[in-house]
């Protein structure tokens, strides 16, 4: 779908969504991330790849955590980083969004890392970006969060390098989750044996099977024989929007407990893109338990974001005269 994000030679021009990318490119991201991991362990925690480049973190939806990982990633690649939290209301016109972009472009940004609350926002900015300016999607509405999905793939790969043997369950609020959408595409592209979604229908999008997944409404059945379980954050306001009943019913049906985890394979790893709601979607004993790789996901985020930034900015030679 997104030819917008590729250069004519197939390298990354922008990074907007996993959908539309080739498996080899995802593998390259994972391998590049593996090469960049050691940078954090050295005396000088930087490589000079992006020396002289300027990365602007443009966050229309506040997220200190994600913004910080992008900031550190860019700095470790020797780029200059500027952070901008842009306060917008839902009535902010698209034109003024674009004015913001154009003003910053005039300050010679090479890359925008953009988070926005509307689906398609990253595509919108990429479509209007000047030649030689790249857009990296740090989350747009419910649509995509491709760097999060890639760091999750990197985490899985480190534990279980053969994707074709994996059964992966994604549990919870898939309807509103850009992370889940990107994970599903990435897992299917990397050849996962089976991707399962476990959720009540109120938290699933229309015709979820069309994404290439199997749907389960029952947690125990869905977890059976899984190698990887990815828990999604449940926003408490879902209980007001009639997506869910109140009280602890969600946790009783879909919360990941030690007892439930028994249904998965004994070496199953437990993931969560964070931030967690302990006792809402996941029991503390599981989140902190031996099968949890949740903290590892956070540290893997750095290498993966470095890899993607280096690949995108390394692809700019295609468009620069």
């Amino acid at each position: 779908m997104n030819d917008l994000q590729l250069n004519p030679d197939g390298s990354l021009r922008h990074f907007l969504s996993i959908e539309g990318l080739k498996p080899a490119l995802l593998e390259q991201i994972i391998e590049t991330a593996a090469s960049l991991e050691q940078v954090a362990k050295r005396a000088v925690k930087k490589v000079p790849v992006l020396r002289g480049k300027t990365v602007m973190n443009l966050f229309f939806e506040p997220s200190t955590r994600t913004r910080t990982t992008f900031e550190i990633a860019a700095q470790r690649l020797s780029a200059d980083v500027i952070n901008l939290d842009v306060q917008t209301s839902s009535t902010t016109k698209g034109e003024s969004l674009l004015d913001t972009l154009k003003t910053l472009e005039a300050m010679h940004a090479d890359m925008f890392v953009i988070r926005h609350h509307e689906s398609g926002a990253a595509t919108f900015f990429a479509r209007h970006a000047a030649p030689g300016v790249s857009v990296l999607n740090a989350g747009d509405g419910w649509h995509a969060h491709p760097t999060q999905a890639m760091l999750d793939m990197f985490t899985i790969w480190k534990h279980k390098p053969r994707f074709d043997r994996l059964k992966v369950a994604i549990v919870g609020d898939i309807l509103h989750s850009r992370v889940a959408r990107s994970q599903i595409h990435a897992l299917n592209l990397l050849g996962a044996m089976e991707v399962r979604l476990i959720a009540p229908q109120t938290l699933l999008p229309e015709q979820p099977e069309s994404l290439g997944v199997h749907v389960y409404h029952n947690m125990e059945e869905g977890l059976r024989d899984c190698d990887v379980v990815i828990m999604l954050r449940l926003q408490k306001e879902r209980m007001q929007g009639a997506h869910l009943p109140g009280g602890d019913e969600y946790f009783r049906c879909y919360g990941l407990t030690e007892a439930r985890l028994q249904h998965a394979r004994p070496d199953c790893i437990v993931m969560h893109p964070g931030p967690m709601n302990r006792g809402v979607e996941i029991a503390s004993s599981v989140a902190d338990g031996p099968q949890s790789v949740i903290l590892e996901q956070v540290s893997n985020g750095l290498a993966v974001r470095m890899a993607i930034m280096a690949m995108v900015l390394g692809g700019q030679h295609e468009v620069r005269p």
């Binding site: 390259q28 960049l36 991991e37 690949m311 390394g314 692809g315 030679h317 295609e318």
Partner: peptide
């Protein structure tokens, strides 16, 4: 020339 697609860890 962009990133080497077959970069290995140092």
């Amino acid at each position: 020339i962009g990133i080497n697609p077959s970069v290995q860890p140092s």
